[in-house]
């Protein structure tokens, strides 16, 4: 179980997160929703170790993540799919996938097969440079790359950003599919409607604070959430 307890994060003197607490149980899809600048991405980056909290504690099972470097956190199986995809543009699709399996010493051929069955497009384009893929394909590659690392927890940052509606649907279905295979997912999304539909539980973040939590269904039907994030 991934547990965030009362973390404070600062950018210089600006306090970006205020006593944020949340937990993600094994096998769940948990989503963080909120407006621009609310601190969703900051929360993810703090979990993956890219930013250090000034206060509070993040634990994964018995490990204290607050004391670990990003690559050590990744080696525990907590893998981030960063915002804006960040594929390795001058490397081929295949090389990107191999990079995803960078920490693994075991046989990766099964996972490669699985990833290609989730995203057949990537199989067709495995020799192509990742920078030449379309936005949607790059997002698929970013997710596939993280899957190659055999994640226990996958931190997904805005997977629907800049994608056509049909592709968004596609990506969310795939996220559910991945979750069914036993990967715990923490999803940050601006597309609150889609995120809440697939999430078991959700947190609402406003200006650096968790202001609400509940099951996906509860929040979908909550008046305040409807008004602020679901457009009506």
């Amino acid at each position: 179980m991934l547990k965030v307890e009362g973390i404070d994060v600062y950018y210089g003197v600006i306090r970006a997160l205020k006593e944020v607490s949340l937990s993600v149980n094994d096998g769940e899809i948990v989503t963080l929703i909120g407006a621009n600048g609310a601190g969703k991405t900051t929360t993810l980056k703090t979990i993956s170790g890219l930013i250090r909290p000034r206060k509070g504690k993040i634990t994964f099972n018995d490990y204290d993540l607050t004391k670990m470097a990003p690559h050590e956190i990744a080696s525990l199986g907590i893998l981030q799919v960063p915002e804006g995809r960040r594929v390795f543009g001058n490397l081929t699709v295949m090389e990107n996938l191999l990079m995803g399996a960078y920490l693994r010493k075991d046989d990766i051929s099964k996972d490669l097969e699985w990833v290609f069955s989730l995203f057949p497009r990537l199989k067709e384009r495995q020799k192509q440079k990742a920078g030449t893929l379309s936005g949607g394909e790059q997002q698929m590659l970013a997710i596939a790359r993280a899957l190659m690392g055999k994640p226990r927890v996958m931190l997904l940052d805005e997977p629907s950003l800049g994608l056509a509606p049909l592709l968004v649907l596609n990506i969310f279905e795939t996220i559910q599919e991945i979750n069914k295979q036993g990967v715990t997912i923490l999803l940050v999304e601006q597309n609150a409607y889609m995120a809440l539909q697939i999430a078991h539980r959700a947190y609402v973040i406003e200006t650096g604070r968790v202001v609400m939590e509940g099951t996906g269904r509860e929040l979908l039907n909550n008046e305040a959430v409807k008004k602020a994030y679901l457009g009506g």
């Binding site: 890219l50 990744a74 893998l79 594929v87 390795f88 001058n90 995803g100 960078y102 690392g149």
Partner: peptide, 11 residues
Amino acid sequence: EDEIASEAMGV
């Protein structure tokens, strides 16, 4: 290519 992504891969 991308230092942040590389770090996220565990490098």
